[in-house]
């Protein structure tokens, strides 16, 4: 079972098996989630209709951090056990994480203009997410700086492990500093401070984001594996 996530050959079998259900899930959850988010869910009593930005902003922020966490775990595994699959995952997944971070920053600034009155504030949460975006860009660039692809990957993995110190800073920045960005609403699973009518579309949109991210990641990883096989 675990070998699926380490062994490239088994991963390709798993990918061929899982790719069609993922397309199905992502299309269905996208349609249902958009209907729920745009029509069914109620307006916020303070923010009005702009609260609907949340259904894209929050899942993309979660996925941006989750992608970095996955990259960190895979780079530790790849460096420690000398399995090249981790490097493949890193190079395939980094642009996806960068895209999610960009979506999060973009929608956040669109949301901030009507609510806070500015596009951008130098606030702990916003700054650390912007740094996450810069880190993703450096990770993408750093791999291509050397002609030797083996070296580039290992260097990039070390850099990812150094940069993973940013993840807890992003998570706890709203608790440690007095920020304009609000603290997490869904931190307590038992009693979240968000209404169920808004929780439902958020949940469906999160499923959509996870499935579309996983779908793109699987396709990219598969392409990367096949390309490397061709080189060898």
């Amino acid at each position: 079972m675990i070998k699926i996530f380490i062994n490239p050959g088994k991963f390709i079998n798993f990918a061929n098996f899982v790719i069609k259900p993922l397309i199905f899930i992502s299309i269905i959850s996208f349609i249902i989630g958009l209907i729920f988010a745009l029509y069914v869910s109620p307006d916020d009593y303070q923010q009005g209709s702009t609260v609907r930005i949340m259904y894209i902003h929050v899942p993309s922020a979660w996925l941006a951090m989750l992608t970095f966490l996955i990259m960190t775990i895979y780079s530790i595994i790849a460096l420690a056990f000398k399995t090249p699959f981790g490097f493949i995952v890193n190079s395939a997944v980094a642009p996806i994480g960068a895209t999610f971070t960009f979506i999060c920053l973009f929608t956040g600034s669109l949301w901030g203009k009507p609510m806070w009155g500015t596009w951008w504030v130098w606030d702990a949460r916003l700054t650390s997410v912007a740094l996450l975006f810069v880190m993703y860009l450096i990770i993408i660039f750093l791999k291509k700086t050397t002609n030797n692809i083996n070296l580039g990957e290992k260097i990039t993995s070390i850099f990812i492990i150094i940069c993973s110190i940013n993840l807890p800073i992003i998570k706890f920045s709203v608790d440690w500093w007095n920020t304009l960005h609000q603290p997490a609403s869904i931190s307590k699973i038992s009693s979240p401070s968000i209404d169920p009518s808004m929780m439902k579309p958020l949940f469906i949109m999160t499923i959509f984001f996870i499935s579309i991210g996983l779908l793109i990641a699987i396709i990219r990883i598969k392409a990367e594996i096949l390309e490397r096989k061709k080189i060898i």
Binding site: I138, L142, T145, T146, N147, L151, I155, F159
Partner: peptide
């Protein structure tokens, strides 16, 4: 040390 063998893009 991260950029030891990097001759192309030293600005990074």
């Amino acid at each position: 040390s991260l950029n030891l063998l990097n001759n192309r893009n030293i600005e990074i």
